[in-house]
Design a protein around this nucleic acid. Structure first.
Length: 634
RNA sequence: GCCGCCGUAGCUCAGCGGGUAGAGCGCCGGCCUUGUAAGCCGGAGGUCGCGGGUUCGAAACCCGCCGGCGGCUCCA
């Protein structure tokens, strides 16, 4: 692919080896095939940002010898420079000087060099860089790359390639405070958020991308499409669903409900409250209390449910089960409430009241592998109906150094962790292992989706649990007539309607597929004053609605203005009804779908479809909806 | 929860070294034979997030609370 993005470095391929080489040393590799690394590539950003971090750190030291470096990191959009300023506050002049100094350093030919860990620690000690000293000390590497300037040193913990830029653009964004090493009890560092580009051109194309992001912001889209709102008198993180949003939710529920019934699940319905006894048995009150809403009534403590599992377990427990009857799969759109700290809330993607597509599967240990396989298949089917294909898997395991966070024996945990890992491997699914990410009752497979800014958000989750079956003492009768312990799989495929819909809106820039659109068809008479056209439009609307299609007649005002309005509301089908259509009963609908241009920017795809009569339109829509949902919704 | 920023009409925002509110869109009314992304004219609409303080006087300054955004942390 041809890119006009800035070149950061080159990759030289020699035999099997790949080596990163600086632009300035290209000549030394005369005959070797060189592959450029662009700023637009993930690797390019990493190399560039990492180098700018070095220059920033050295820039800080040039301005103030008394500030301590606390490290420099980056996201896809910005660099964060952490410094400890003692009691100083950062003023505008410091920032201006820092950016000038750093820009100057970037234009110089700074050298990177290798040092042994012990030598580096010695240098840092001499320079009194006590924070960086700690970081290096705790790092397992034996060698580090450092950049020196004016007797100061900046340590690179990432891939280090020498660079220089005559036209680099640095921009101050804002500042915030962060705790040293993310520890809330620790002291605060000043974090400067800085954006950096190798050239003005790169900066401009970034600005364009950002316009695109704001276009996809699900909070803004929620307002524009009139889907949901919040109100301080209800409380933060509690969503009010307006009719359009309620329709989308209901569609998601209907779709999943039908899909689950087809896949061997049975519906259950459970209350939102329980006495604390239930959640004491489950262990939630010991391990999850800080997230729970707890209140007293009639001298008894009650809780608003933060999870559905204990309820499903009680339903399962109502009778004795034969080994032949397992697995039993209970399914519920369970609305749960969790106290999430105020600063973490955001739109639909992080809320306090959420509805999970929750299921608990009760099975024999020998059925685990197969069931996880079925779940992974179901997950793929479901996501593809939503048009989502880019998701990744994470295996969340317990923190081996902090066992007190979890219930159950180490033996059970090992068994559970191994079972999940094997299921993923057997299914050929790539995944990442992470320690300390498990639920308190068991390890899990988490499914991550990217939001419009590229941040990963956990949606689906498949959790294996040997612990709650013990706490609730649930068993089945095996072939040998002995009672055996069941295993529970907790799972939510889209996770929660709220978060998933938030991500869906960003993914589609608000242009949901036909089957999910709150209004599917806009009917527009050409002449708002023509009685004939008006009454035909209304009749058409009625007939569509009677066929389960969500149609709206837009009658008032100029046609062009109404077309614009229908487009703004992201209505997928726009049908204009004029004299010609009344005469021929042949309709043309403008079908507008989500699409992207070559740069990944939202660009609707338009198609004209022609149908005979109202019947023809009804059939066309039903067919398309059936196609999108794999025949689940017709 | 912690740190920083922010909160003016339904929406987007202007006004803010103190003298008690403005625009565009939307909404309502009227006019125009109106074929695929904004016709024209008029009108209504605001305890300036809430509570307290300073002041002769606060949307503006100070304090507290609520809510939002960006980080930290946490998570579906």
């Amino acid at each position: 692919m041809v890119s006009n993005s800035d070149v950061i470095a080159y990759i030289a391929k020699k035999d099997e080896h790949e080596e990163l080489i600086p632009r300035t040393k290209v000549k030394e590799y005369g005959n070797t095939a060189l592959q450029p690394v662009f700023f637009d590539d993930e690797l390019g950003k990493r190399l560039f940002y990492s180098w700018v971090c070095r220059a920033l750190e050295l820039g800080v030291k040039r301005i103030s010898k008394s500030y301590l470096l606390g490290g420099c990191s980056w996201t896809l959009n910005e660099i964060r420079l952490d410094i400890y300023t003692f009691n100083d506050s950062i003023n505008d002049r410091f920032i201006k000087n820092l950016l000038e100094e750093t820009t100057r350093l970037l234009s110089q030919q700074l050298r990177a060099e290798k040092v042994e860990k012990n030598d580096l620690l010695q240098i840092l000690k001499e320079k009194s860089e006590v924070l960086i000293y700690e970081v290096v000390k705790d790092n397992d590497s034996r060698e580090f790359m450092i950049v020196k300037d004016d007797g100061n040193v900046s340590v690179c913990l990432d891939t280090c390639v020498e660079q220089s830029y005559d036209e680099a653009v640095l921009e101050y964004v804002n500042q915030s405070m962060v705790h040293w090493r993310g520890d809330e009890k620790s002291f605060l560092l000043t974090r400067l958020h800085i954006r950096a580009f190798p050239s003005k051109k790169a900066k401009d194309s970034q600005a364009e991308l950002e316009r695109e992001y704001s276009l996809r912001d699900h909070v803004i889209l929620g307002r524009e499409l009139d889907l949901f709102l919040t109100d301080p008198s209800v409380g933060a993180g509690l969503i009010l669903w307006a009719p359009n949003g309620a329709i989308v939710r209901k569609l998601m529920e209907e779709f999943e409900y039908k899909l689950h019934l087809r896949h061997g699940y049975q519906p259950v319905v459970t209350p939102h409250l329980a006495t604390s006894e239930l959640f004491e048995t489950s262990g939630h009150l010991s391990y999850y209390r800080e997230n729970m809403y707890v209140f007293d009534h009639d001298g008894k403590t009650h809780v608003v449910k933060p999870m559905n599992c204990p309820f499903h377990i009680l339903i399962f427990k109502r009778k004795k089960w034969s080994y032949k009857e397992l697995p039993v799969r209970y399914f519920e759109f369970g609305t749960v409430y969790r106290y999430e700290r105020a600063g973490t809330l955001h739109g639909l993607t992080r809320v306090r009241g959420l509805t999970q597509d929750d299921s608990h599967i009760f099975l024999r240990p020998d059925q685990i592998q197969e069931e996880i396989g079925r779940l992974l298949d179901l997950l793929r089917l479901m996501y593809s109906s939503y048009g989502i294909n880019n998701y990744s898997f994470k295996l969340s395991l317990r923190d081996p150094n902090n066992q007190s966070k979890y219930i159950g024996s180490a033996e059970l945990w090992e068994k559970a962790e191994k079972a999940l890992e094997e299921a993923l491997i057997n299914h050929g699914i790539p995944f990442k292992k992470e320690y300390g990410e498990a639920a308190f009752y068991g390890p899990k497979i988490d499914i991550y989706l990217k939001d419009s800014l590229g941040d990963r958000k956990c949606c689906g989750t498949i959790q294996l649990d040997f612990n709650l079956p013990e706490r609730f003492n649930i068993t089945y009768v095996d072939q040998d007539n002995k009672e055996k312990r069941v295993v529970i799989i907790h799972r939510a495929l889209i996770g929660s309607i709220e978060r998933f819909l938030g991500i869906l809106l960003e993914y589609y820039a608000g242009r949901l597929p036909l089957w999910l659109a709150p209004v599917q068809v806009a009917l527009l008479p050409v002449d708002e004053h023509s009685e004939e056209q008006r009454s035909y439009t209304l009749r058409m609307r009625e007939e569509l609605i009677n066929n389960g299609i969500r149609a709206e007649a837009m009658m008032e005002g100029r046609l062009q203005a109404r077309v614009r309005e229908a487009r703004k509301l992201r209505i997928p089908l726009i049908v204009v009804i004029g004299e010609k259509e009344l005469r021929t009963e042949e309709f043309e609908a403008q079908w507008i779908k989500y699409g992207v241009d070559e740069k990944g920017r939202y660009k609707p795809v338009e198609e004209k479809i022609t149908v005979r009569g109202i019947r023809g339109l009804v059939e066309w829509i039903k067919e398309e909806v059936g196609r999108e949902t794999h025949g689940i919704i017709k």
